[in-house]
């Protein structure tokens, strides 16, 4: 069952990148496009900046989207002073547990 689940996720990710952007359900990798909202917008589309402002930034389907490789993720909003968060990435540092960290690289085909 786990195998099947991972297979489905795999297809989803491939679809997400290469499939037609209009006809798919988005999974957790890209939580940005609100389908219903964008359909409504399509109907009453004012020719101007007003509409674009609200869609700007997150809409991948915008043909005039800003050309920018930098992606500001939400992690900046997390409070990295809290102990829990610090503990969660502790093993990604040389000061953490090396044996646990090496597990990350044992990737099963």
């Amino acid at each position: 069952l786990a195998e099947r689940a991972s297979l489905r996720q795999n297809i989803n990710l491939m679809q997400l990148v290469y499939g037609k952007p209009a006809s798919k359900s988005l999974n957790e990798t890209l939580d940005c496009i609100d389908e219903e909202e964008s359909e409504d917008d399509e109907f009453f589309k004012p020719k101007g900046e007003g509409n674009k402002k609200s869609k700007e930034g997150t809409d991948v389907n915008d043909v005039d989207i800003d050309d920018c490789s930098k992606f500001l993720n939400t992690a900046t909003k997390k409070n990295w002073k809290s102990e829990d968060l610090i503990a969660s990435i502790r093993n990604r540092f040389v000061t953490g547990d090396w044996s646990k960290a090496s597990l990350r690289n044992q990737f099963s085909e």
Binding site: F71, N73, A75, K78, W80, I89, R92
Partner: peptide, 21 residues
């Protein structure tokens, strides 16, 4: 603080490069 948090965020995410690259 924000830049440091962004860096930790990238580290947390994993991968051999950050999201910009």
């Amino acid at each position: 603080e924000q830049t440091a948090s962004a860096l930790l965020g990238e580290i947390e995410q994993g991968g051999v490069v950050d999201s910009t690259h």
